[in-house]
Amino acid sequence: MRAVIFVLLCCSPWGASSTWAVIETYEFSSPDLERRYHALSQELRCPKCQNQNIADSNAPIARDLRVVLYEQLQAGASDDEILAFMVARYGEFVRYRPGMDRNTVLLWAAPGLLLVLGAMGLFAHFRQRSSQVHAALTDSEKSEIERLLQEPRA
């Protein structure tokens, strides 16, 4: 049984590594550049295959962007310069962490807004529950209960 589970795990996407990076070889002049290459290629989004970053995508446009990224890193461009270059061509869409502007303000504010809304809902719910008064039974209700309890069971 264990062996079966092991085999299944190996076949399932969860068994494998979560990043299916494309295999390409680039020679970096320093380990720091290589680290920045990996960080940036995971932050940049492929314009064609929209839910993949350019590190994961096999689309030709993603390959082109990786080449540009590599060349710019080797030429000594800063992270900000590279991101600005990409955004100038493909818009804020190309970043998984877009800058704050008129179009993205809702995106950035949404988690906070939802948290506040949820907290308000919970607060209202518990306040309402604790304020519910358990009214005492009237005399006629009490005698009705007595009567029902003493009824012979069918």
Binding site: P47, K48, P60, I61, D64, L65, V68, R89, Y90, G91
Partner: peptide, 12 residues
């Protein structure tokens, strides 16, 4: 090479 396309923001 697609370089003009890249400068233009072409993605397909």
């Amino acid at each position: 090479e697609g370089s003009v396309g890249l400068d233009l923001g072409v993605y397909g």
